[in-house]
Simulated scan of single mutants.
Amino acid sequence: MAQEKTSNLRKIAIALFVIVFAATAFILPKLYFKFIAANVDISEKTYLYIPSDADFKQVKDSLDAKAQFKRPQYFYDLAKERELEKKFKPGKYALKPGMNNRAIVNMLIAGNQEPVQVSFRNLRLKENLAAAISKKLEFDSLQFMQLLDSTAFIEKYGFNKDNVYTVFIPNSYEMYWNVSAEDFFIRMHKEYTSFWNAERKQKAEALKLSQQEVSVLASIVDAEALMDKEMPTIAGLYLNRLKRGIKLEADPTVIFANQDFTIRRVLNRHLTKASPYNTYRVTGLPPGPIMMPSINAIDAVLNYEKHNYIYMCAKEDFSGYHNFADNLADHLANARKFQQALNQRNIKK
């Protein structure tokens, strides 16, 4: 009897073993393919963009196109279990060769984006900046321009529509692709505040200029100076004019006022343009920058060269340097040499 009972127990054990083995043989591969096995079938890193207003169908379509899953059903089984449809976050994500399903699902739920490098410098107009950054970030240039044209918004940060462009300090910045236009501005204002440290503020106060006015003057200096080493000299010249109440008479402001950036030779007809930016007609600084000033130009204004120059003219050798003068007679002589050089090169406009 005992022998028969032992035999039955052995049979039960064998049966259980067979069942467990069969179940394991069936389940383990599924678990392996669902959680562990590589499922992204690409040869190099690619990027998945999920817009802020995307629904899960858009996410699925993008995933199918970008990840090229070897076994898509295993991914979407896991995605369903983890409620990815409700939990995914918008952004720019890096898909790498050999990624498994768990890594992708976790990444999209946690919002582990790859940051974007946004760089800008030497951009003439706000519109140029809007176009440049909209190529890097989710929001479009129109949204950005509407924000900069919103008096209610920019006044909260101490700017107006004319000088708001001075908030953008040219540099490279790291941020997320789906940052909003408003949050982008807030980040730029934070960088602006950091740039204008106590030392720079003290130097601006010594010049009796606001931070925005320093940047406006720096934009003129930047437009005039082809060589950075001349910036402090040019800055000193314009500061001399401001202190004496002499019109700046800066050719780049005339070009800006005419909104014709093909002008190579400023003529009398250009000087008559009625505009607050035409420093041949108005005294003092224009209301806003004529381009995005570089950090070098801003610092050149703050650390200007002390001298008596009030006139400058491009050198006749077209080297990019200038002849400076502290009296009208010398300046007119320099101007004649440059005008003759223009005529010799048949530069009429």
Rank of each mutant, 00 (worst) to 15 (best):
E224K: 13
L16K: 05
R71C: 02
K243N: 15
P72V: 02
L31K: 00
I295M: 08
V167I: 14
I255E: 13
V266R: 14
R264I: 06
K45D: 11
V20A: 07
L28E: 01
A79C: 10
F153S: 04
T193N: 15
A38F: 12
V40G: 10
N100D: 10
G111E: 07
P289R: 06
V282E: 03
K70V: 07
I42N: 02
W196K: 11
S52F: 08
L78N: 05
F261L: 13
Y304N: 13
E182D: 13
L63C: 05
A218V: 05
I255L: 10
N178V: 06
F17W: 04
W196H: 10
K349L: 10
Q344W: 07
F324N: 09
P115A: 03
Y47Q: 06
Q58A: 07
D41I: 00
A297H: 12
R187L: 15
D251C: 13
A67D: 00
K229I: 13
R264Q: 14
S180I: 13
K201I: 11
S219Y: 07
I14K: 08
S43G: 04
D317F: 11
A2V: 06
A22R: 00
N303S: 15
K349P: 03
M312I: 09
K89L: 09
L226F: 12
D251W: 11
I104G: 08
K70E: 08
N197P: 10
K57M: 06
S119T: 12
Y165P: 06
A54S: 15
K349M: 05
E199K: 13
F69R: 05
I104A: 04
L328C: 00
N163Y: 07
L267D: 02
L237W: 06
A37S: 14
A300C: 14
K229M: 07
L285R: 06
L226E: 14
L125R: 08
N171W: 00
T262Q: 09
E4C: 09
M227K: 14
Q340C: 02
A65I: 00
A335Y: 05
N128Q: 03
K92S: 11
M312F: 12
I169V: 14
P252V: 12
L332A: 06
H331P: 08
M227V: 14
G284L: 07
E316C: 05
R121L: 00
K135D: 09
K87I: 01
I298G: 07
L267K: 09
R269F: 13
F75P: 00
A94D: 10
M145H: 09
N160D: 15
A25Q: 05
S134A: 11
G288C: 01
Y238K: 13
D64C: 05
Y76E: 08
G284I: 12
V116Y: 01
I42A: 02
Y176L: 12
L237I: 12
R269I: 09
L48H: 08
K5L: 15
D64E: 11
S215V: 02
M291G: 10
V167P: 01
E182H: 06
A341D: 10
A235W: 09
L108I: 09
N106G: 15
N8T: 10
D317R: 14
N268W: 05
P252G: 02
T6G: 01
Y277P: 07
